[in-house]
Every structure is written in C-alpha cells, then in structure tokens.
Write a protein that binds this DNA or RNA. Sequence first.
DNA 1: CACTTGACCTGTCCGC
DNA 2: TGCGGACAGGTCAAGT
Length: 290
Amino acid sequence: MPELPEVETVRRGLQGLIVNRTVKKVHHDTPKGFPNTDADVNNFLLGATITGVRRRAKVLLIDLSTEYTLVIHLKMTGQLVFRAAGVAFGAGHPNDSLIGELPDRSTRVTLTFSDESRLYFNDQRKFGWVRLMPTIGVPNIDFMKKVGPEPLEADFTAEEFAQRFERRKKSPIKVALLDQTVIAGVGNIYADESLWGAKLHPQTLVGNITKNQFKKLYSEVRDVMNLSIEKGGSTDRNYVNAEGRRGSYIDFARVFRREGQPCPRCGTIIVKFRAAGRGTHICPKCQVLE
DNA sequence: CACTTGACCTGTCCGC
DNA sequence: TGCGGACAGGTCAAGT
C-alpha cells in the first residue's frame, strides 16, 4: 500500500513516538520477514536506544544507538503501529484507530520498550520485511544503490526530473514513473493522480512527451505527494499511520478509485483499465493517447 | 539492456 | 451462504 507520502507520514509519527526509547524485548517471525540471527538481535537491538527515524524512497530506517539500523519495507500491506503502555486501542483515541487489540494475527514483529510501550509491525500479505544491519552499510544495499532521487527535495529540479526519464524513451510514462530507479517513491495512486494532473495518458511513450509536459508532470508529482503528506496519506484498505489512524488523501483524489464518477475538470466519466500491469484510472477526455 | 510476466502471500469482493 | 476467480497501493527474478 504505502507510497512515499504514506511512508513519510509513518516516519513523522514514529519520530515523535519512539525516539529515545530503549528496546527491552523483541518478538519476531523468521526468516523471510526478519532474517537476522538471535545473536544479531541480542548484540545490536536489545538494549539499544532509538536515535532517529529516516526515510529513503519507500524504505523506513530506524537508527539505533548501537550504530545499527532497522531497515523496513512495508510493501503492500505493512503497518507500523505504536501503542503506549497499557493502552489497548491507539494511544487514548479509540475511535480514531482502525486497529484493534495488538498483537493480532498479522503481527510479525513486536518491539517492547523499557516503559512497556510497544511498536508492532503488522503485515497481512507478508511481502514486507524488517532487517537489522549496520547503519554504515545501508547505502550499500542493492536497492539504495539503484534507487532514483527524492522528488520532494528542495533542490530537485524540473530539468533533473526530465533527465531521469531519458533512458526510458520507449517506456509508457506510467511504467517509467513506477520505476523506482528513475525517481523514488511514486506508486500506483500517485502515478494515476499526477498523470491526470498533467493531462497525460499513462501509455504515452516517454519519448513523445514534450519538455513542457515534463515540466507540468514534475509539478504534479510534487504537488500531489505534498498534498497527500498534508492529508496523512491515502487509506484505501490497509494503510494506517504510526498511531493506527487513517489518512484522508483518498477523499481528495481526482481519478484514483473514482471510476464511474465525473472528472473534476471536465465532467467526463472516469474509467479504469489495466496498464503497466496495474489498475489504472484516467479521464478519457483529458488524457488522450497521441 | 529493456521490457514483460510471474512470484511472493492473504484477504476481500463479485458473480454464479 | 458457498465457491471460484479476479484483484489489491510493491519489488524482484527470470524469461523473451
């Protein structure tokens, strides 16, 4: 589920909730979701204090005082939910939490802190993973070496954005947008939303896109993801923030999951079809394949 | 090398 | 209500 705005929302939440807490106990499944040995856990996780929470692309990095880092990918259905000690339903806001008692049957990792508060990693589909590794080694993992630039960074320009697509001239633009080695963080929701904003059909070949269209797409990608972060991300099914609450971007979506409804720009009925191997939503009048 | 397809899993929804 | 099949927001490996 989570794309850049969702992972960033979780990061911000965790930053305020778990930094300076010390890990007292660890429970995890093995080995696919958590490949480390007991020795790793004993030496570098137990007794460690959380020093910070970072994000790169859709990957979360929880830094520890041992100079190790918990590297976490939520993939489709991963959740990281914090619970204060003795609070069953979401930090005193029971009505806002989508998540009930924890752990539940999707819980795969539990960190218990010294004050008995807990961080749960839940993952229904089990595509996600948590892995403990030396902080210094994080930039060397394959994904980090290949992943493209962060599109929301202040110094990321429209020119650089357009340049990143140059090697994918024969790809449909939606495929290239979803390719994490081109730019980081865009997934299916924000691909559809930004292509609608730029009035580009998802199957338009990159090589046929003009400089001005790229400029527009650049602003749309940034605007859409910034708006989503402001709204706490998109909760379509599984996604929740670090307190188990939903995000509201989906209420502001223009095309995603809006098939059968009118295009907010021209009133034409939004249609859904398959492109780039994914469910794809467009306004057939605003987004015409040249 | 670039592009496509299938695999990884479980849960839900839709049609019969 | 039950059952089969399609589908779900992400990546990676293997195949063409």
